[in-house]
Design a protein around this nucleic acid. Sequence first.
DNA 1: GTCTATATTAGGATAGAC
DNA 2: GTCTATCCTAATATAGAC
Lengths: 219, 219
Amino acid sequence: MSNPPKPRSKTKDKILRTSLALFNNEGEINVSSVDIAAVMGISPGNLYYHYKGKDVIIEELFSDFETELRQVLAAPINKPLAIEDNWIFLYIIFEEIFDFRFFYYNLTSILDRIPNLKPKFSRLLALKANTFMGLLKKLENENHLFFNPGEQDVLAERLAAHFTYWLSYCDLRGGAGSSKSLIHEGVYAALSQITPYWGEDSEPYAALLKDFLDEQKTA
Amino acid sequence: MSNPPKPRSKTKDKILRTSLALFNNEGEINVSSVDIAAVMGISPGNLYYHYKGKDVIIEELFSDFETELRQVLAAPINKPLAIEDNWIFLYIIFEEIFDFRFFYYNLTSILDRIPNLKPKFSRLLALKANTFMGLLKKLENENHLFFNPGEQDVLAERLAAHFTYWLSYCDLRGGAGSSKSLIHEGVYAALSQITPYWGEDSEPYAALLKDFLDEQKTA
DNA sequence: GTCTATATTAGGATAGAC
DNA sequence: GTCTATCCTAATATAGAC
């Protein structure tokens, strides 16, 4: 469970960074190990000396992703958020996902080619859902949100799904748009699922939220 | 645009049915043209005589799917639904998707390997979103649902996304469950997105809906 | 229409010299 | 650590006999 400070060689590090960039931009499925080597200007043989194939690279990239995302998700536990900070929290999660987006396109094929990964990814997803659940509970306790029994769980789960598939869905709907606006719209769509549960006396926050979103949009 | 009644040879038909079953059960990516031929007990050469490769098969399967789904989606236009029938309508859409589910897992990789398909799939998705929009509008006109400006469009879009990714998401969350219960839970999750917009005087429908869902569950 | 046999590739993998 | 050269395999694709 602990994470010994495993320093990577310079080449290993460059392989990971190059692979990540290629996977994100071309799609994992369209990038071969030979491609990675070619882009780096090293030989396939050399690549194999460091990582025995694409799958090992992907596993290591996932491990990086997991570490970072777990840190992000733990933030509100360590230091409870002011209500306005909840939106920023969503942005940060989305940015993390965006950095490793290759994973979220082609999820099925990656997970069933590399069996180790599926349980890890599932656990991470469950953690996401739990975190959202905690957030909703907190907002309920503070009388900002009001739920009928059961609604809260379903919403938390739905938010987790939203974060998982938003980027793919944008791509499908003619995407366009910069990375900034993709993420922005994603956060907006997430929030629009929460607003129906707002209480009357939280109305001021609606205005506050609107300002915040407009501001992000033009930033 | 018109659909001439293109009768298929017996072998062609069997190829399509076998491929569909294999794709759905093993994942499109894990099924080669040789596999298809082997399962049918014919030679790869023979398969190629009828369809020049997997991609052509997939295109034809999509065309079947599109035809069927368009018919389903057109139903409420031809003959407006009683309010209770809306839930059944959702079931039917889900069942159609389920029958061609191989497509919805691995969506990204299929669509960027077969470029013809992407615009077709996008249009079908847009039609889905429009149909949901029409449904919501109708329920609003009948004073069952109440929306703030903008909420309706976002919800319709979100429902379309839900139908697109529900099966993948279940798979990720440890799925289990029969096909029946997968679909049932999917419809339930869809409805739980609509209920927050119900008006007070539609309460009787809540009970009605609950009965219906229980009934389907045990069926 | 169907078969057998063979060709073509592309990607994954290794051996051995430097 | 890095390179070159080579091999293995699985999947696609075609030719030609029946």
